[in-house]
Each structure stands twice: as C-alpha cells, then as structure tokens.
Amino acid sequence: MVKKKQQDKKNNGEGYVSTVLSLLDEEENVISDVQKEIFIDEIRELPPIKEGQLNVSGVYAYDMGDKVEVKVYVRNGLSTNLNLQKIPFLIVNSKGDTLASQTFNLASLGKLPPHSARPVKLYFDKKNFKVDKIPADDWKIVLNGEFNVTSKVRPRYEGLPEKISVEDKLVFDKFLDELPEMEEGEFSISTFSIGLQKNGNILVTTVMRNATNKPITISKMPMTVLDKNKRAVKSQNFIMKNFTVSPYRARLCNFAFPTDVHPENDQSLEGWSVIYKLVNINGGKNIKKL
C-alpha cells in the first residue's frame, strides 16, 4: 500500500472552508463509531480548499494485482448540494506526469451536501496505468478537464408572515419540500393555490424560488388565470415594489385579480392554473361568471 503524504495545511489567505464528514444513510447504519473517527481524522489532515471548489484528495493506493484501489475524499466546497456523475480522474506525480487516467461514475455517492467530505474507493484498471508502480510519496489524484457536475439547490423560505400559524407553516413547508430540486442558477415560480374570495378577488398564491448566488428583484409580473378547461379568464400585469428573493431562498407572494363575482364563502378553484404571461381576454372585458 502506498500511503499518501499529506501536504502543508497552512492557509494564510481568506476564503477557505472546512468540510465535515458526510455519509450515505445506509453507511451511517453500518459503519462503526471508531471508523467514523478515523474518517474525521483523515479529513482533518487533508489540505485546505477554497469556497466554491470541488476537490478530490487521495489517502492511499493499494495494488490488487489487476487493479489499484485508491481511497479518496470527494469534498464539496460549494454552498449548495452537488450531484456527481461521470468524472475523469488522473493520478500524477510531482512533475505533473500522468501515471494513470480513468473515468468513474460517482452517481452512487448521491447528493453531496455543502462543505462536506465523502470517502470513496476508486478501482483503477491496470491497463490505464503508464507506469508499473506508483512511487511512494510522489503521487496525487486530481480531476481531469471537463466533467459533468450538477449543483442541486433546495431553497428555504424567507419572509414568512410573523403571525403565521403552525398548521399553515407546515402546509407551506410540505409544498416547498415536494417541489423538485433546482439546478444552480435557476429561478422558478410555482403556483401554491388559486381561490375565489368573498370580496370578489381571484387570489393566486405563488412560491418563488431563487437558486442563484445573487438576489433577484422582480418589478413586473405578467399573469393570466386559466380555468379548468384551460380558457383564459383574467389577465393582469402586476407592478411589484421592492420584491426581492435572496440567494437560495423562497418567498410567498399573493396576486389578486378583481372580479364582479362575490360568493358567500371563499372557495378553492380546483383545476385552475396560471401562466406567467399576458393573454388578451374578450377585448379586455371583465368576466361575468366564473
């Protein structure tokens, strides 16, 4: 076995992040506390990484005959989840010479949480080596060129009403949790509910999610309400003041479409939907009946 000699861990600059051990749920149940402590100690000995980096660090390489087992830690220096797929790796020496190269599918690693490290064993085929033997204390494993990394984001709420009831918060949380994860850089609008109020307003409640690293401000929102037969019934361009969704956050927003229909009680408009653009409706006349 060729044990990897760790590099100097000093970091005099700013922007470095600490990573903590992250295991898959099935591993949590079978790996002993002693083994977890070994993992934690190994992570502490790894060289530092900066915010925003995806890093792989080798611990040892073991010659198995037709393969070489390489234990590495994959570390996520991003502030969002990562899902890894086909990743090309190189084993190189201190001169930068390539000793071995092979692509591995890391989908089995699952979702890698922000600022976490996960151990994995890579099995390099001997046919992918350019040398007969890995030199002691003169090798490292690195990522090679372009690879498929998807950063998954699950925004959490901000700006919920202070007096929101526990029951309502649970309903909103459940809706948010059931929405699909977002790709880094996306912004989405999801319709939470559509209902007709006693005051005659069609009230549309939306959840806006920001999966970017910058705040997003919305000044106008063109919207059209469709009935269950997908017919446009109300259309309006809402002017919004100071409405900003922070990075990696979600916000609720209500939109009211006035009508001349006044039911005795508030009612849910099941099967109705919203599109986020303006549609001309009967020359712009208000609907008379819902």
Rank of each mutant, 00 (worst) to 15 (best):
L24H: 07
I281Q: 08
S101D: 09
N265G: 11
M223L: 14
S57N: 06
K174G: 12
G58V: 02
V74S: 03
L196R: 00
V131M: 02
Q35K: 14
S22P: 01
C253V: 15
N83M: 11
E37P: 05
V233F: 14
L290K: 02
L54F: 07
L226I: 07
P247L: 00
I31W: 13
R249A: 14
I134F: 04
T244I: 02
G145I: 10
G13K: 10
D125W: 10
K230G: 06
P119F: 11
V142Y: 06
K126I: 14
V92T: 12
F129L: 12
V261N: 09
Y123N: 12
K241D: 10
V30L: 01
I216M: 04
S101I: 15
N12A: 09
K71M: 04
L160C: 13
R209V: 02
N229Y: 06
E146N: 09
V149W: 14
V68I: 01
Q53F: 08
G159R: 07
E264Q: 12
N242S: 06
G77F: 02
A136F: 14
Q197D: 03
K130V: 11
T217V: 13
L170A: 14
I239S: 03
G96R: 09
N280K: 13
K163G: 08
Q197C: 07
G65S: 03
K220L: 09
E27R: 07
S273P: 10
A61F: 03
V70F: 02
N12K: 08
P113E: 08
T80H: 00
K133P: 03
E178G: 02
K67S: 04
V261A: 12
V20P: 10
M1N: 06
Q85H: 10
G58A: 05
E27S: 08
P180Y: 11
A232S: 12
V2A: 11
L99G: 04
I281E: 05
L90N: 15
G96V: 08
N280M: 14
